[in-house]
Design a protein around this nucleic acid. Sequence first.
RNA 1: GCCGGGAUGGCGGAAUCGGUAGACGCAGCGGAUUCAAAAUCCGCCGCCGAAAGGUGUGAGGGUUCGAGUCCCUCUCCCGGCACCA
Length: 897
Amino acid sequence: MADSGTRTVTSPSMSQPTTQPAMQEKYNHIAIEKAAQQHWETTAAFKAVEDATRPKYYCLSMFPYPSGKLHMGHVRNYTIGDVLTRFHKMRGYNVMQPMGWDAFGLPAENAAIANKVPPAKWTYDNIEYMKGQLKSLGFAIDWSRELATCKPDYYKWNQWLFLRMLEKGIAYKKTQVVNWDPVDQTVLANEQVIDGRGWRTGAVVEKREIPGYYLGITQYAEELLGDLDTLDNWPERVKLMQANWIGKSTGVRFAFPHEIKDEAGALINDGKLWVFTTRADTIMGVTFCAVAAEHPLATHAAKNKPELATFIEKCKHGSVMEADMATMEKEGMPTGLFVTHPLTGESVEVWVGNYVLMTYGDGAVMAVPSHDERDFAFAKKYKLPIKQVIKQGEATFSTDAWQEWYGTKEGICVNSGKYDGMDYTAAIDAISADLKAKNLGDKKLQWRLRDWGISRQRYWGCPIPIIHCDCCGSVPVPDEQLPVVLPEDCVPDGAGNPLNRRPDFLNVPCPKCGKPARRETDTMDTFVDSSWYYARFATPGNDKAMVDERADYWMPVDQYIGGIEHAILHLLYSRFWSKVMRDMGLVSYREPFSRLLTQGMVLNHLFSRRSDKTGIEWFAPEEVHLSKDEAGRVTGATAVRDGNPVDYGGFGTMSKSKRNGVDPNAMIEQYGADTARFFMMFTAPPEQTLEWSDAGIEGSNRFLKRVWTFGYTYATQIKPQLPAASTLASAKLPENLATLRREIHLLLKQANYDLGKQQFNTVASATMKMLNALEKAPRNSAQAAEVVSEGFAILLRVLSPITPHITHALWAELGYGADILQATWPEPLEAALVQDEIELVLQVLGKTRGSVKVPATADKAAIEALAIASETAQKFMDGKPAKKVIVVPGRLVNIVV
RNA sequence: GCCGGGAUGGCGGAAUCGGUAGACGCAGCGGAUUCAAAAUCCGCCGCCGAAAGGUGUGAGGGUUCGAGUCCCUCUCCCGGCACCA
């Protein structure tokens, strides 16, 4: 830390400001905020310049998607970042806080469909408006580093790195499964599929397999998992979620041999049905196998079984989302094909199951109904045999209903021949060894993590730099032709990618053979854009390189702040991208974000109405009337527009698409940016989910008014009494002033502690407590004036990161200094904290009965004696002798009788 | 369904290592000021009880001199689940 606890609290300058206009008596947030923002602008106060002589502090908040207006989640996120930025600046760090725009994405296309405006125009208009909103909040942002991911000078480097990944085999092409809308003839995002139907057309969505580009994030699985241990300043829960997502597990991959042949007479898959299991210890309990609808065995069997073909078709209409797969009704159908159990030689029937995914493992699973809950349910439904092979203690096994212990790994094998009596580990070792001996399988490391499909069949994204040539195939765009620029004047209409109707974009000579060829029209997943923007902020303006030596100075990000909803995908992709850049020699860090603060979501009521034709329609909270029960809970709602009921969906994240965001503008206009910022910080700790309510905003505003009024009182009544030179260090204070001073320094100590914990709500309340104390302070002596003056100087500085405008004005106005940003952060003084006598809580038999005052120097025996002798103790001890006395130093005494 | 998190007065929340539950604020109530109101200031404010006291941190159990905090079981709510960002 640049600032140790040895620093003394600075006293205000004693000199009177020269010819200043008289201080305003009333708090005028409009004038104050305008003046402060102007001051920062003219002094370029937040311009960040590399400086090797000072410790750097790169503070980054997740950049916003320019959806139109800021909402309260943004205000919360960016205020947290700003508080940390300003706090560190005052502690002597060389700080950088940039801002930019995650500017590609689906909402711009949705807006285009609705309003017939090109996504580019809509996006740039939104950026303009939201930038104004951010400025009005007074954030300490270095705007000279601003970037937007939809600009070619940014996304050029997405394309450039993608081509490097292709060269290294990290990027590759394979088929992917997508949601297909048969009416609009377009690919739908999961968000655009509602109850299995397209959001615009209402048509039943189909699964389709199309080619796409993937990034081999699984090649980095081991490192992404291992390096989580180096992230000491990340929340444990985020690391845990990432580790679970990566999902390293050891299991056994093995094959059921078979003789099934296709029409040409060749063995399908070389006569082996491969499966993966983490429960090889239950292999002797296999009673059937299940394969995915797309599995070659399923395809083969369906040729002679129309009802199976129908079932497979139905499976292909199902959702591709994991949550849907897990919760849907499990269904299956027998193929009539049989494979051989590799250890018992028994015949095992193959079923098609709608819950088996072709994209995971080998697209097939062994089924052990006795020890897997899903298989159990499936076997019960289709009356398949259930064979117990694990026993736990004396518990009896019954096939009537699933019992929790059936699934446990703690137990021993039974009905398993030579494996009987073995525990989980021993059984797996023995079974995998036997399978290996038969050349039918082995232990295998399995990852849950899948490679990252980045192709999107959408217009408003970064073009994938590939050219398709009839002769040469898929040809990478040569570096000197980068960037492949996306035309900005297209207006998507919902029916496919409009790039396919743009000959000027499509038609291009093949870079290899020069013959007419066609550009790839798929664009990149927007997670690509956000996977490295933090590094680009450190390299503004360089059109020759993706990053330069300035990134070496600023990276890694010292403090990253963003919503907990990004705990897995965005953060994992960013970590992956960093490691790829490192392996290409572009950067030297292993991990991009040293410290992470995951902000809780800001929630608001959700209202919707559903219809078969138009899909789902969302209502903003101001567009409905609420009905509530006696406890104040919302029971229902009607639309203001037509008086008809709308569905109440409880609380959910504020989002543009669900129309439940709250625009901070009204709040800022009425109360000012400082009030909005203070309220956001005061109302809840940063990591906590927040159900939005503006009840209480007036209290925050009232507090700032009181701060201002106290400043006025200070200027007119207290400051004139200050002695020429400070006496605080030498003179003994009367008890009431010593108490006041101790209280302020104690509050400062707590505030500094809480800032370290990033718990800003209690920092805010500490400043309120300081003001309460200062307002009650005596004002009738030079010494009192000194104590108050010191206390107010502490209050203003502690408050300044939260409410920078009002504290900027008061600091200068009251003559504490020219610019509070240049002031040093206050530290509590030990001398102010000492006290002669302390009060301990007095308990008898663990129940609090009162308190007892003891000298601060009293030892344990003295405290015991004083406590037992006290009137309160005597009353509740009821004449019995003390059996045991527990003394917690500085806290309490508990007498056990 | 799986993974992660949460639940404390009428409301937002506080309680740093297991040590006075409800700090600070909102709302409410009473008072001062005012012709009146707004604004401001002062006081009260978990629940039961006249008081003494009892009781109380989503529900139920446990450990401990002492549990909001630790352990077990459960309920509800929020986030993520790979094409929302």
